Amino acid sequence: MQASITNSTSRYGWGAILLHWLIALIFIAQFGLGFVMVRLTSQRTAFQLIQWHKSFGFLLLGLIILRIAWRLGNSAPALPDSVGALERRTAPLAHLALYAFQIALPLSGWALVSVSTLDIPSMPFDLFVMPNLPIGESDAAESFWTAAHWYLAYAGIALVAVHVAAALRHHFQLGDAVLTRMITPSSDRNGE
């Protein structure tokens, strides 16, 4: 039995699984990195961490766009019969909120560096210069986007915590396959 890259009717394929866990890892690591980098006393180390934070932010933005495109081309597996009517209605909304936060957060960071009066270029992984968004530089705009990025980060991590709690509830309390279908890929045989 060979694992499939695409989703089946009951499980996710390798494509969705790898994108899901890679995005999750980067998203959570970005929160930790952002938390640490603004609290360092060494400006040199803080600057280096900020550059890494920006690099992974651009990577995250690209991956989430790819994840959404992948999702649009591969329908999600059906929820198990054990999932109630209310959860069937709220689960798509929760996933939509996760996608929205994962796009809004790096975009707000990009806006923040774009409006900064420091005019420090963003060079993802030292490979190329990422152009700024076409918005005007000002201290007021920088303050706004700093606050927006901060609030989005904390709201996003709270949403991720709820998502993790729901997955663990399905696995340990309800005993259904909601979590395992995002760990074990579908196979080519019979679409399962």
Rank of each mutant, 00 (worst) to 15 (best):
F101T: 12
P131L: 10
A111P: 04
L118K: 06
L107D: 01
I135C: 00
L133S: 03
F125H: 10
S108Q: 11
S108H: 04
I120D: 14
M130K: 04
I120Q: 15
M130Y: 06
D119A: 05
G109H: 09
N132V: 11
V129L: 14
P121M: 04
G136Y: 01
V113Y: 08
A111D: 10
S116R: 00
V129H: 03
L118A: 11
F101P: 10
S108P: 08
S138E: 00
L105Q: 11
A111Q: 05
I120A: 15
D126Q: 05
G109P: 09
D119S: 06
N132M: 08
P106T: 08
F101E: 15
I135N: 03
T117F: 13
Q102K: 12
I135P: 09
L107I: 00
G109T: 04
E137A: 14
A104S: 12
F125A: 10
G136F: 09
S116L: 14
D126Y: 03
I135Y: 04
F101H: 10
E137G: 03
I135F: 01
V113T: 10
P131I: 06
S138H: 08
P106G: 05
I120P: 09
G109E: 11
F125C: 13
G109Q: 07
S108W: 13
S116K: 07
A104C: 12
P131E: 11
Y99P: 02
F128H: 00
S138R: 09
L133C: 01
L112V: 12
V129A: 11
F128C: 00
F101A: 13
S116W: 11
V115G: 10
S108K: 07
S138C: 07
A100D: 03
S116V: 14
L107W: 07
V129Q: 08
F128A: 01
Q102M: 15
D119V: 10
L127N: 04
F125W: 02
L107E: 00
G109D: 13
D126V: 12
P131Q: 04
V113H: 07
N132C: 12
G136N: 05
E137H: 11
I120R: 12
A100T: 08
S122R: 06
L127F: 00
I135R: 05
S122C: 00
A111V: 05
F128E: 02
S122M: 13
P134W: 10
Y99I: 13
P124Y: 01
N132K: 03
P134I: 05
M130C: 04
L127T: 02
P106W: 09
D126P: 06
P134S: 02
S116G: 13
I135T: 01
V115H: 01
F125I: 10
A100C: 05
D119W: 06
V113M: 13
P121G: 10
P106V: 00
F101V: 13
M123L: 13
S138V: 06
P106I: 10
T117G: 11
S116F: 03
F128V: 03
I120T: 14
L133Y: 03
M130V: 09
I120V: 15
V129R: 10
A100N: 10
V113R: 06
Q102E: 15
P106F: 00
G109C: 12
P131W: 08
T117C: 14
V115P: 09
L112S: 11
T117V: 15
G109I: 00
I103F: 13
I103R: 07
D126F: 12
M130F: 09
M123W: 07
G109L: 12
